[in-house]
Design a protein around this nucleic acid. Sequence first.
DNA 1: AGTTAAGCGAGACGGTACGTCTTGTCTTCAC
DNA 2: GTGAAGACAAGACGTACCGTCTCGCTTAACT
Lengths: 200, 200, 200, 200
Amino acid sequence: MGDGHHGNRHGRSEAAREAVLEAADDLLTERGFAGVTVEGIAARAGVAKQTIYRWWPSKVDILLEALGSDLAQHLTPADRGPIAEDLRAHLRALARFLTRSDPGTVLRALVGQAQHDPELAARLRSEQLAPQRERETERLLRAVEAGELPADLDPGSAVDQLVGPVYYRVLVTGEAVLPAFTDALVDGFLRAHGSVEKPS
Amino acid sequence: MGDGHHGNRHGRSEAAREAVLEAADDLLTERGFAGVTVEGIAARAGVAKQTIYRWWPSKVDILLEALGSDLAQHLTPADRGPIAEDLRAHLRALARFLTRSDPGTVLRALVGQAQHDPELAARLRSEQLAPQRERETERLLRAVEAGELPADLDPGSAVDQLVGPVYYRVLVTGEAVLPAFTDALVDGFLRAHGSVEKPS
Amino acid sequence: MGDGHHGNRHGRSEAAREAVLEAADDLLTERGFAGVTVEGIAARAGVAKQTIYRWWPSKVDILLEALGSDLAQHLTPADRGPIAEDLRAHLRALARFLTRSDPGTVLRALVGQAQHDPELAARLRSEQLAPQRERETERLLRAVEAGELPADLDPGSAVDQLVGPVYYRVLVTGEAVLPAFTDALVDGFLRAHGSVEKPS
Amino acid sequence: MGDGHHGNRHGRSEAAREAVLEAADDLLTERGFAGVTVEGIAARAGVAKQTIYRWWPSKVDILLEALGSDLAQHLTPADRGPIAEDLRAHLRALARFLTRSDPGTVLRALVGQAQHDPELAARLRSEQLAPQRERETERLLRAVEAGELPADLDPGSAVDQLVGPVYYRVLVTGEAVLPAFTDALVDGFLRAHGSVEKPS
DNA sequence: AGTTAAGCGAGACGGTACGTCTTGTCTTCAC
DNA sequence: GTGAAGACAAGACGTACCGTCTCGCTTAACT
């Protein structure tokens, strides 16, 4: 905070808000989810606990807000070339995002916590995962319109077949998700759905 | 406990062990992961906290032990008919296990917690998930031997393509996992790998 | 607590402080020293354990504070008549205080615990016993000034000779301390120091 | 224990008994009363807890037994010279015993604990303090018979007047108990009771 | 000589209290 | 009227001892 004001009648402090979000993010990457406590965030952000409780119902809401629009920024599928290439690029980006980026760490932690917390699960899905899924089905629908994929394709199932194995490896098996793996996923998907494109 | 002994040279009390595992399981399904406390387990199991700490390093270890061999019991893929039918049955069983069974609830909670706890992740994978994966790759390899699947199949990737979307729906999107979905997964998989069997 | 505030910038809650002291006192008289536990005090006072640990290093500090100024209130020697009468009254009051009053019970418990705890012993002496001794020597010095006692009297030893046997009976032998006994103590003391007053 | 037997039908092991008493004594002098735990005694004595509980109801019983006949050995008043000299020697010995000897430490701890434990108080008095008092009154009675003290002397009160101030200093004020103090006690006592001996 | 039974070391057991930690609420004061 | 400070009630944490118990070994006394 530093030179920031200490309370005023202008409404909430943007400086405090950002300090909290950053502190939460830092604590998560440095000490893991258990190290993210409201007390710790307040201390690191130089903010009173009450300020946190005033604006966020719980610490997961802070992380949700910290996640922000990172998914849209990092994971909007390209629409630049043939569907095969765009999908390969998207799955590679997804794998990289989930395993190596800071917001990916936040997302993994939230998905993990969502297994214990149905309310968080609902918010996470409606605010972050559903829009992301929308971006992905949209790209597939455009490929259908372009005649690259069959007209009777179920885009929901299709997305699951593509991203599901990536999430599975990240969340469950912990195995590395290499380009060879994601590329093979795309190839298998296209082969199964009789793509006119030849897989590499 | 009742007639059970209260400590002796034989080592640990089997009655206490079972009471703890059952109490942990009950608390998880009744109150969720946050409701599983060592204090609560001890109280419900009629066991001293020290007895719990003597044998389990943490509460997740209790859940891990409570999971026991449930995966092997519920999720060993059948080898009774053509690979298509066995896979369809297996994915249906997996979906049912994850979404509706008590041990499935435990597994989901542990996978969730594993996102915050690398040590638990490692144990969960080596003790439960790797053997399960082994059972699944084995079934695929037998299909390869039987000529039902191509000889150059990568069984690891194949398993990911099959079960990955199921876990994804359960853990991430929360969408229902109906037989139609899992059957379609199997069909797509077989189509992609040029199975000689005709999908239904 | 009831309508009391729950923490604020003024510092500690006076209501909590008093509830703790009273609970400790009650527990001591009802269940004895072993029945005085931080847990029990907290429960009875309707106070969080942390609040107790914030302000008192240990349970004996609570009792020490509960003792407060009871000694000064109950055991300040009168200066109303001849030294013989004042001393007789004082020793009778001391015996009554030690054996039959609530703060006397607290003092006995603390003196007992002080045998196991040098730090408590030091605090008990400096905060309670030394001032009490001061009050007693002062009365003797006034008697010296009044010519009732010899000028070369060692007031420290004199106090020990008077109150020592009373404490001894209370703490060690457990024998009753009747007025006849304390009166005889005063008589012996005055006779030994050649008082001009005639003992009764 | 070493070469000691491990149970037989001769009855209890003397080696175990002595090891327990010594361990208790050591722990008391080394770590204070709070450091005397049944667990700790068992560990240091190389003895099973059950062996302790078989023979002693509680840890204070161990200390009581450890005290043994130390009082009789150290604190039997001499009967060698004039009462004045014997009393002076006795009070000096008492002061030394209480403040500087190991059994004195045990006695102080027990008297302290007796303030919290009426049952211990009763046993301590009947087994140790009453006999000791008996030894002291006896010496006074012999002085009465020898004409050194008046025939109407109340020996109980007299003992209290002599030893009370010593215990008081040791247990309550913690002040040093020097020979000058105890000698003055004897002198005052003899002067008050019209001794034919001239005080020094 | 084999059996019996008591005392033993060992240590797990159900408990209680410890002192610490974090949560989410509340109150006050500075700005 | 926000925000920093921080006390509060609540309650779980993991530890230390308590006193009880069961066990298998050792050993003398009694078949």
